[in-house]
Amino acid sequence: MPVLAPIGRVFLAFLEATGRFGLFTGTALSHCLRPPFFPRAILHQMVEIGYYSLPVVGLTAIFTGMVLALQSYTGFARFNAESQIAAVVVLSVTRELAPVLAGLMVAGRIGAAMSAEIGTMRVTEQIDALSTLSTNPFKYLIAPRLIAGITMLPLLVFVADIIGIFGGYLISVYKLDFNPASYLKLTFEHLENIDVVSGLVKAAVFGFIVALMGCYHGYHSKGGAQGVGQATTNAVVSASILIFASNYVLTALFFGT
């Protein structure tokens, strides 16, 4: 049947891609756990992901906290419930906005860079050169990025939590005339350990997703500059979608009734 052939081809291609991705993920994870490690490469990636992403994530967090306070005030003022602003800011930032927005910003900044760098190494035979120099590309290129992604994004999100809450505090105190001490008191009254911990766990998962997508698409890129460009786009888009999807799953696991 001429209609069934293209469907079968698409299905087989889907199965092939799924299998390839599964194998890549399994191999990458196993190299994260098995020595030898490359401490210098891991440290380099940690600085790249953690330190250099700090300004971008910090700016995103502070403006998000500020907007959140302003918008909450607009809504809550109608019901004389302005005291809930602190709760909305602290819960939204720690549970959802800091991890998701930091994940997306890092996907744009680091996921794209990883994909472009590894993709260029692939099309210029640098990855083949690694193998001929008795160095496993998964150990030298992929594992350090995954380890750095998993460890640094929670730290970034922890900083983003503080900066985001501070953004809400700034607007509430200096624009909406809240009492600073009572705003802080309300913030800490509503904040529980699980709010921060769930955000940090999400961050670790998002860090893994961003690094994995960047590495996977870069590693399998082909066809020169155009192929590298396509891999970079795919890395950012797939990481972003997976961040949203996994955010739902993790939220349901932590807070679902």
């Binding site: 640098q126 050169a129 120099l133």
Partner: peptide, 26 residues
Amino acid sequence: GMLFQGAALFDSLPVWQNVAFGLVQA
């Protein structure tokens, strides 16, 4: 040992580290 068509030098390392790569890693 292998000499690649496009040289395939590692962009992220200076020349001497490229040459020393196999000695250090392998």
